[in-house]
Each structure stands twice: as structure tokens, then as C-alpha cells.
Amino acid sequence: MKLVIFAILLAGLSYLLFPGLRGAARRRLPGRMRFVVACVACALFLLSAGASFILWMGSVSATAGGGHTDGAGYLLPLAGVSLLLSLGCGVAAYRCR
């Protein structure tokens, strides 16, 4: 479910950052606003990646010999996806600069 939310957020962000792809009749966001949106999205994705990784480390370290992570196996891939989205938003912010 969280990956679906991230996909929707990424689609909305790309809709805001790359207005040329949706037609010339629509008005573009000012360059400064696109930069701010990309920086905020980058920071939020980076915080999400960090929080997911810390929660995953806590769940893995809490296991007692059996190797069961109590269903927290999705946190590491979620942290990876968040980190990649953060990198993409950072590149978009650099290009908007």
C-alpha cells in the first residue's frame, strides 16, 4: 500500500515539475516554485527512507535467534525506493536550479 502511495506522489510530482509533457496549452509553474517543490519532495523522501531504515534495523535487532522479523521485511525495500525517489527529486531540483 505504501508503494502505491509513493507512486501516486511521484506521478503528482512529475506532473508539477515537467509541465511540457502534458501539453503547451497549460501554464507552467515558475522556476523558483518548481525548485522549492523538488527540494521539499527530496527532503521528505530522504526522511522517509531514513525512518524506514531505522525501523527495519530495530526490528531485525529485536529478533531472538529465530531470524523472524515480525513482518517488517517490507521496510528495507521501502527505504530503498524512498532513497531512489529522493535521488530523483534531487536531480530534478538540480535541473530546475
Rank of each mutant, 00 (worst) to 15 (best):
R22V: 10
R95G: 05
G65Y: 07
A79V: 02
G71R: 07
L85D: 03
F18Q: 03
W56E: 00
T69Q: 06
A93G: 04
L85A: 05
A41W: 07
G31F: 15
I8A: 01
K2D: 04
V81E: 03
A64R: 04
Y15E: 01
L21A: 06
R97T: 13
C96L: 12
L17F: 10
L9S: 06
F53P: 00
A92F: 11
V60T: 03
G20Y: 15
I5S: 10
D70C: 09
M57F: 11
G12E: 06
W56L: 05
I5Y: 12
G90M: 14
S52C: 05
R95V: 14
W56I: 00
L83W: 05
G23K: 11
R97G: 10
I5K: 08
G23F: 09
L87C: 07
V4A: 10
C42T: 13
H68T: 01
R27L: 13
L16E: 03
C39D: 05
L10I: 06
L10Y: 14
V37F: 15
R27V: 14
P30H: 14
F6K: 00
A24I: 14
R22N: 05
P19L: 13
M33V: 15
R28W: 15
V60D: 03
S59H: 11
F35I: 00
F35K: 04
L29A: 13
S52F: 06
L9T: 05
F35P: 00
A51F: 13
L83K: 00
L3W: 12
R97Y: 15
A25K: 11
A51V: 10
A11D: 13
A62M: 04
T69K: 04
L75E: 02
R28Y: 15
D70I: 07
G66F: 13
L21S: 12
R97V: 15
L84S: 08
A38W: 12
G65K: 02
A62W: 04
G50N: 00
G58I: 07
R27F: 15
D70M: 11
A49D: 02
S52P: 00
L85S: 02
S52R: 08
T63K: 03
I5L: 11
P77V: 13
V4S: 06
L46G: 03
M33R: 07
R28H: 15
G50H: 01
R28A: 11
L3C: 01
G88H: 10
F18D: 03
G50T: 03
